[in-house]
Amino acid sequence: MRWNSPLKYVFLLPTVIWVLCFTMFPLLYSLRLSFFRVNIGQKDIFIGLENFARAFKDPNVWNAAKVTLTFVLVGVSIQLVLGLLFALLFNRALPGRNVLRTIMTLPLFATPIGVGYMFITIFHEEGGFIRASLGAKIPWLSNPNWAMVSVILVDVWNWTPFVFIVLLAALQSIPEEYYEAARLESSSQWELFRYITFPILQPSIILVLILRMSEAFKVFDIPFSLTSGGPGIATETFSMLTFNTYRRFFDFGYGSALAYLLLIAVAIIVTSFFGRIRQAYT
């Protein structure tokens, strides 16, 4: 067979070159910026690791790290648990199941910044939906802890459906015979879940976990529109802090250093799951 034509390079190389030019070059450029004090219009000054040292002394950076970690850990856990429960709930004979499932996927592609603004009208403390319809007076956006809760809730609304549909797909791929065989040994519902469903779901759960975590670390749009990082800096995530640093204060050097710290964090997460990623994609 002719499965070794030199044409293969024509197919692959343009893309490789494209990605090299448009990601590797900016990455290097940004790494370079992080060692400089940058003022557009003036000559850049090399300052070594000063930007990174400054980051470790900056209370705002620690705050942003804390906010982002809380957001990732709490948010993704809730999504996993809820998504799993919903998947189990929908994995039974339900009238109109496909329609319901389709409705649940609507938030997935919804413009995140639109979602953030939409939820202000839900959480607004004087006349938002929760206040107007349920009567509960909760300081959703004015109390630092509740603001964090609000941001996480919006993310949960946005991304639980993702966990849900992936796990539902995995559930539906489990042959009924497995259960029938197990039932002969009179297993309880819990044991069925513990010894059959869960082990089969496990690879999918880990995959979802990786994908959600690597995305959640970059979160920007939702706190940007929902709380703009407030009150105070209680919901200022790492991406937002970086954005503000270089964009509002033109501090390109320091901003790049912060961006690199975020890159390192994401890289650690991704590489620690590298085995599973490799298995899923190759």
Binding site: H124, E125, E126, P139, L141, S142, A147, T227, P231
Partner: peptide, 11 residues
């Protein structure tokens, strides 16, 4: 009002 901590001017 407690909520003013998250209000902008219009609110």
């Amino acid at each position: 009002p407690e909520a003013q901590a998250a209000w902008d001017l219009t609110e």
